[in-house]
Design a protein around this nucleic acid. Structure first.
Length: 507
RNA sequence: GGCCCGUUCGUCUAACGGUUAGGACGUCAGGUUUUCAUCCUGGUAAUAGGGGUUCGAUUCCCCUACGGGCUACCA
């Protein structure tokens, strides 16, 4: 039972896709482990077979892989404390619940669902709510209220039962949360939670304590929703005699909806138009597809950076971090206590920042497959020129295509709103004339073009914009895009001229 | 209802008990640009309320309000 160093675990339940908050919990565990040369462990908490969703486990692993968070021990690569899937550890839990029973810290309860329902109705009189605990346990059907013979005969005839923790009375449980400080609870407010279900599997409460102990977990970093049951977990450690080597707890604040109140949920993403999941999730039963950050064109490093700063800050004004920088700057005591509202606009801002950090070649690697799927085979050198012109306007990866398509396809429509605004009497004839002069331009480049435009507008006594805006409309189809000279120079003389004449015909 | 946790600009947040309460996102206004973006500059905007403690509270304590979480044979 020697100290095994820093060991943390991420313990998701495979009941569906992992959302933002889950990824952040994993991230904080990862950062803490890496910073302390510790181990980062994945443990699948699948003790509820009713809620098992096929594909969820795989989804969780793939998501974290995309984020770049690698485990030291998990169900694939194994480890010294395997298995890492709780459903494969049921024998272990049986053994430990036996210890609790022997020591009188747990008891058998035979109440059926209907009986529990009855009790709830009977005891909840508007002011008070039913709690299976000190005030009620003796009136229920359990090994505390029944004789030993009665219990034995019930077991013998095959009655199903659960095993509940016996919460001691009038005891103050105190523990130190690394984020919140001292948390104090009187045991009288705790109820006799089910530790072991009638299906032979433990509940979270038992499994988590037993596994954290057995796996030598040094720090439990988990969501705030576990704070209320932490005192009960502490009691469990005490009953087992493990209090001296109990992990330290850190309960993370929740991630809230961008607007309004409450926990962030999948619905918010649908409603407000941003992903809440790291990668796309296809619901196996509902044939419904939820957006993922990956597929929407976010960079994993931007996603991670954004999550890291949602509830934690480095104490400096640095906002952009590499994973390594996050590892070295991270600290549990700079995690906030209050929940943080998620801000999709800031997520996009992070992504923009990270895209600007990419090299042209990296961006090329993203754009190239898109070009191919659109049936475009362009000279790499040409594509690189295009990328350098449009890269600064790219916020999400798909913008790469959105902003570069004009270099690969001539427009077939011309924005009527823009036309209305800029097309004047005489514009067409200006353009005809200009186009004719363009034909003889040699060499054809930004500089020569510029000179020609100056000469032309001066001769016509018109503003540069009076020529350039209509020109842009013909060549691009709208009022958007990089500088007109840049576009022309990249497009080349032939294509440029062709678009002008086609435009003049069709507009 | 009970128990637990929380509360600084619209949002994320900074501030050994002493700061003109700082930064970022958003937003607004200017500038750059032949367009749209980007970019640059500037502005806007906060300590929930009330009591203490203290020479002095954003900071420490209490109360109230508000918000959140938990209250399953779910995690």
């Amino acid at each position: 039972m020697e100290t095994a160093g820093i060991r943390v675990r991420f313990a998701p339940s495979p009941t569906g896709p992992l959302h933002l908050g889950g990824v952040r919990t994993a991230l904080y565990n990862y950062l803490f482990a890496r910073q302390n040369n510790g181990k980062f462990i994945l443990r699948i908490e699948d003790t509820d077979q009713n809620r098992y969703v096929p594909g969820a486990e795989d989804y969780i692993i793939k998501s974290l892989q995309w984020c770049g968070l690698e485990f030291d021990e998990d169900l694939i690569k194994g480890g010294p404390y395997a298995p890492y899937r709780q459903s494969e550890r049921s024998a272990i839990y049986k053994e430990y619940i036996g210890i609790l029973l022997d020591r009188g810290h747990a008891y058998l309860a035979f109440d059926t669902a209907a009986e529990l329902e009855d009790a709830r109705n009977k005891f909840s009189n508007g002011h008070e709510q039913f709690q299976y605990g000190m005030k009620t346990r003796l009136q229920m059907k359990n090994s505390l209220s029944m004789t030993a013979d009665e219990v034995k005969s019930r077991i013998d005839r095959g009655d199903r039962y659960v095993i509940r923790i016996l919460i001691p009375e009038n005891l103050t449980v105190i523990f130190n949360d690394l984020i919140r400080g001292e948390v104090k609870v009187l045991t009288d407010s705790l109820d006799d939670k089910v530790l072991f279900k009638s299906d032979g599997l433990p509940t979270y409460h038992l499994a988590n304590v037993v596994d954290d102990y057995l796996m030598r977990i040094s720090h439990v970093i988990r969501g705030e929703e576990w704070l209320p049951s932490a005192p009960m977990h502490l009691l469990l450690y005490r009953f087992f005699g493990w209090e001296y080597s109990m992990p330290q707890f850190a309960h993370l604040p929740l991630i809230l909806k961008p607007e309004g109140n409450g926990k962030l949920s999948k619905r918010d993403g649908d409603r407000l138009g941003f992903p809440v999941f790291p990668i796309e999730w296809k619901d196996p039963s509902a044939s419904e597809v939820s957006h993922g950050y990956k597929e929407d064109g976010y960079l994993p490093e931007a996603f991670i950076n954004m999550l890291a700063l949602l509830g934690w800050n480095p104490g400096t004004e640095q906002e952009i971090f590499t994973l390594d920088e996050l590892i070295s700057s991270f600290s549990l005591d700079k995690i906030n206590k209050a929940g943080a509202k998620f801000d999709p606009a800031k997520a996009r801002w992070f992504n923009h920042k990270f895209i600007q950090l990419k090299t042209g070649a990296e961006l090329y690697a993203y754009l190239d497959p898109v070009l191919r799927s659109n049936g475009i085979s362009a000279d790499p050198e040409y594509v690189m020129k295009v990328i350098s012109l449009i890269r600064e306007r790219v916020e999400l990866l798909p913008d790469l295509w959105k902003h570069s398509v004009l270099f690969f396809r001539a427009p077939d429509t011309y924005d009527p709103q823009v036309k209305l605004k800029i097309w004047q009497e005489g514009t067409s004839s200006f353009l005809e004339e200009f186009s004719a002069m363009l034909k003889g331009l040699d060499p054809f480049n930004k500089e020569s073009l510029h000179a020609l435009v100056e000469e032309f507008t001066a001769g016509k006594k018109i503003k540069t914009a009076q020529l350039m805006n209509p020109l842009r409309l013909l060549v691009v189809g709208s009022n958007q895009g990089p500088g007109m000279m840049d576009i022309a120079a990249v497009l080349g003389k032939d294509e440029f001229l062709e678009r002008i004449s086609k435009g003049l015909k069709n507009i």
